[in-house]
Amino acid sequence: MQPSYRSKYNTHVIRIIVILVVLAIAGIGVRAMMIPESFGRYGHYRGEAVVDEMNREIRNGTNASCLPCHPYIKEMHFSGIHKTVSCEFCHGPVAAHIQDGKVIDKLPKKQGEAIKTLCLRCHNQIIRARPRESIKMVEMPKHLEDKKVGIDHTCDQCHNVHAPLMWVKQAKAMMGVVEEEAKQ
């Protein structure tokens, strides 16, 4: 008869099983606590995150968010050649101006040298990378010299920023003589 090597005691086995069961339960518990409820609803991510992203604050509006309160600017801006330039590019986001239908702050107005810099973002001829057929380009200060105005003039002294040719056309209409002189 072979001797039995099997121990009569099995407490160690029970101990290991108990520890494993406890660990498993703790693991499941921790997992349930750590993984957000909507995780895996649509894929390997938190489903609610889509809603979070969707509800991000809209800070830039569209031109339509500015124009109802600024009818005069609307008329001027859309009659001129700058009609494709968005309000918020130069003036800043509507959310910094209007919150819940109330004016909360004035948007900063660019003036002086700042306005020259702003205009030259698009109209600077010296930047060669522009497409061949594109918007009107000027070379500064050559443009000022050509037009016989002071070298320290800023763009908005001759050009209305909303309708750039409005004042120029008006001046030409009024001072037809001047233009003829210039031609001679």
């Binding site: 809209i58 800070r59 830039n60 918020e88 590019f89 986001p93 973002r121 698009c122 930047i127 522009r130």
Partner: peptide
């Protein structure tokens, strides 16, 4: 034309 208005709008948004 490289005016960067897109970048400005993006930073503001």
């Amino acid at each position: 034309i490289g005016c960067g208005s897109c970048c400005v709008a993006d930073k503001n948004e």
